Simulated assay, not measured.
Amino acid sequence: MEIRELQAKAAQIRMDLLQMIFRAKTGHTGGSLSNTDIITALYYRIMNIDPAQPKAADRDRFILSKGHSVESLWAVLADKGFFEKEQLATFSQFGTKLIGHPNNKVPGIEMNTGALGHGLAVAVGMALAAKRDGVRYRTFCLMGDGEQAEGSVWEAAMAGAHYKLDNLIAIIDRNRLQISGSTEEVMGLDPLEDKWRAFGWNVMVIDGNDMQALIESLEAVPSVPGKPTLVMANTVKGKGVSFAENVPHWHHHVPNETELEQALTELSAVFEFYQTEGQGR
């Protein structure tokens, strides 16, 4: 997809995930909205994946370490054809496979996540396996910024650099808000990029809600041979919904009917704008 098409797709995914959360009366709204551009860029432009062969040996791997923000991922996997889109209506309902965190019973999910701090360690293992087996797949791991307070993240970071895993790309959804408030008030992280550089990683700092910046950075990796890459994606929690942006309450707020209608109106306008621009009209 071209940039304009990706921007339109991201607006569509945001609409889908909001309707999922509204129907289910549960979900992590703010973080799913902030990471939508990242996941859209990966699945529609960057990663080597095939919904018809979800277990292909040479597929790129993706781990959503911030597993609570799964709604955007479910919407993308359905849209890509990993499962029928009608299943989105069962999100968080009794007996569904589409639970509130990634579930590897669903095609396209590499591992169950949700216990923060575990995703990067598994991603290191996948990337190391690729190196040792001589397979040319890449492993992408999306983390939250609040997750950076977990010690296991830094153990994994040290291992990734030690084994020179330049086929490993970690991304931080740096929206600066977590469930109990600002990340810098809860557990100060800055200067976060300097810490990752000190652990031996190639660090790229970008606007994580800028599709052009996302594509340019992700298409450039691995940009430093012998080093894993960390993409610090500065994002806005609640991105795309004006009254939810940068509002801590929207971490897991479920929109009411009025809020949903207003949000869908805003996102529909964005979708139509980029779709029209993408068609050259």
Rank of each mutant, 00 (worst) to 15 (best):
Leu192His: 00
Leu214Tyr: 00
Ser32Ala: 00
Asp133Trp: 08
Pro107Phe: 14
Ser182Cys: 05
Ala10His: 08
Ala78Val: 11
Val135Pro: 09
Val236Gln: 14
Ser217His: 03
Ile215Glu: 12
Val254Phe: 14
Ala233Thr: 06
Thr90Val: 12
Asp50Asn: 13
Val106Lys: 13
Leu260Ile: 12
Gly280Asp: 10
Gly151Ala: 07
Asn35Lys: 06
Phe271Leu: 10
Gly117Tyr: 08
Ala159Trp: 06
Ala198Met: 07
Arg45Met: 07
Val205Thr: 15
Ile49Val: 15
His249Glu: 12
Gly67Asp: 09
Met111Leu: 15
His249Ile: 03
Ser72Phe: 11
Met15Ala: 13
Gln262His: 13
Thr40Lys: 08
Asn48Asp: 07
Leu88Asn: 00
Ile39Cys: 12
Ser223Trp: 09
Asp58Pro: 03
Tyr137Phe: 14
His251Gly: 00
Pro54Thr: 11
Asn104Ile: 01
Phe243Gly: 03
Arg136Ile: 01
Val135Met: 12
Asn234Cys: 10
Val221Ser: 15
Ala89Arg: 15
His252Trp: 09
Val135Thr: 15
Ile171Leu: 05
Glu5Ala: 15
Pro222Asn: 14
Trp154Pro: 01
Ser217Phe: 12
Lys66Pro: 06
Gly240Ser: 11
Ala24Asn: 09
Val247Asp: 04
Gly188Val: 15
Arg138Lys: 08
Leu165Val: 01
Ala159Asn: 06
Thr276Glu: 02
Ala78Leu: 14
Leu142Val: 14
Arg174Asp: 10
Ile99Lys: 05
Asn246Cys: 10
Val270Ser: 09
Gly278Tyr: 00
Ser223Asp: 15
Ala127Tyr: 09
Lys25Ala: 01
Pro102Gln: 00
Arg132Lys: 14
Lys85Glu: 06
Val241Ile: 14
Gly108Ser: 07
Val153Asn: 01
Ile13Thr: 05
Leu264Gly: 03
Asn35Thr: 12
Met187Val: 02
Val124Arg: 01
Ser65Ala: 05
Ala156Phe: 10
Ile21Met: 14
Thr265Tyr: 00
Met187Glu: 03
Gly240Asn: 01
Lys25Glu: 04
Thr229Glu: 11
Trp74Glu: 09
Ala233Pro: 07
Glu5Phe: 07
Ile21Arg: 02
Val241Met: 04
Ala157His: 10
Leu18Gln: 09
Ala41Thr: 06
Ala89Glu: 14
Glu259Tyr: 06
Gly160Met: 03
Ala41Pro: 02
Lys131Trp: 11
Leu192Thr: 04
Glu5Pro: 10
Arg138Asp: 09
Leu177Met: 10
Gln93Ala: 14
Met143Gly: 02
Asn202Trp: 12
Arg14Gly: 04
Glu71Ile: 03
Val186Met: 13
Glu86Pro: 08
Gln275Trp: 04
Phe273Arg: 14
Val205Asn: 13
